[in-house]
């Protein structure tokens, strides 16, 4: 009993023991770290980080229409976001290939139109508090259905990645070989896109449109600076995401800062530090003598 009491007094643990909303935020971040972050690793390896950003924004008008119809309803906003996100995920690649507009411009147009439409639709009915909620999330106000949603998406992602790892890896590292030896290439691609949209919606509920990608890309990029193997990368990225989330939540609690940006900023700090000290970062790689790579 006294041990528990002592633990509960530790400043790193006390907020989580004392406040239910902090525990809920912690659980939500754990779900995102386990589900969304591995998807972020593949997003990075497929060089689709910016596409992920565009899709993340595309969710907004869909969620906003849900909001317009049903207010801050989890299911309506999820469904709207899902429809909009999947539509854009399918369109984004095709348009870049069939037009004089190059891919990055095409993504930027999606991004801008979606953001403007989303903000406008929400302003038609809601207050600026609701707008902030949608743009920056509400990790400190996750209710039971929201947590259940995050946990379901995380479970689905983990199961899919665990069973389809070989497929996902090959589709990413040598797609033409995969298409030659197997018919599953399209399944890998579209399956991944659906997982991406689901996790972006999960991230949207917790961290908002503008920050959802943060817990996917930043830990992935951080992990890439430390390890050179896909499985390790998934593990290290998830671990980084969760560690960064805890630190961010504590930062927001003690410094009285908004939680979403505090989490993303902490993850960003981990990334920047890794750039300086990680073995595969630009600094260490330059300092290391060349003979190290010979054998």
């Amino acid at each position: 009993m006294s041990l528990l009491a002592t633990l509960a007094d530790l400043p790193l643990i006390a907020p989580f023991v004392e406040f239910g909303f902090m525990r809920r935020a912690l659980a939500g971040c754990l779900a995102l770290s386990l589900g969304a972050t591995p998807i972020g690793v593949f997003l990075m390896l497929r060089r689709m980080s910016l596409a992920g950003d565009a899709i993340s924004h595309a969710i907004l008008p869909g969620a906003a229409i849900g909001y317009l119809l049903a207010g801050l309803s989890l299911s309506a906003m999820t469904l709207g976001g899902l429809i909009a996100g999947v539509t854009v995920a399918l369109l984004a690649g095709g348009i870049a290939r069939n037009s004089v507009i190059k891919e990055e411009t095409s993504l930027a147009t999606f991004y801008l139109i979606s953001l403007a439409a989303g903000v406008l639709i929400i302003s038609m009915r809601g207050s600026s508090v609701d707008l902030l909620h949608v743009l920056f999330g509400s990790v400190l106000a996750l209710d039971d259905p929201a947590l259940f949603l995050l946990a379901s998406f995380a479970s689905l992602s983990i199961l899919s990645i665990a069973t389809g790892l070989r497929l996902l890896v090959l589709e990413c590292c040598d797609p033409s070989y995969l298409n030659h030896v197997s018919r599953l290439g399209p399944l890998a691609h579209y399956g991944f896109m659906v997982l991406l949209v689901l996790n972006l919606i999960g991230g949207f509920h917790a961290l908002g449109t503008l920050m959802a990608l943060g817990i996917m890309i930043l830990p992935a990029a951080t992990a890439r600076l430390w390890v050179n193997d896909i499985v390790l990368l998934l593990v290290v990225a998830s671990f980084t995401a969760f560690a960064g989330s805890i630190a961010g939540l504590l930062l927001s609690y003690y410094a009285n800062l908004p939680a979403g940006p505090a989490i993303v900023l902490t993850l960003g700090a981990l990334y920047l530090i890794s750039m300086l000290i990680a073995p595969l970062g630009p600094v260490v790689a330059r300092l290391r003598p060349r003979w190290h790579f010979e054998h």
């Binding site: 390896l45 890896v169 990413c172 590292c173 040598d174 030896v181």
Partner: peptide
């Protein structure tokens, strides 16, 4: 012209193993 992404973090062992896909 391979579509192989040589920067992908995969070991030689895991990469060559893909030859057994069939």
């Amino acid at each position: 012209q391979s579509t192989l992404d040589a920067s992908f973090p995969i070991s030689i062992l895991d990469f060559v193993a893909m030859g057994l896909w069939g």
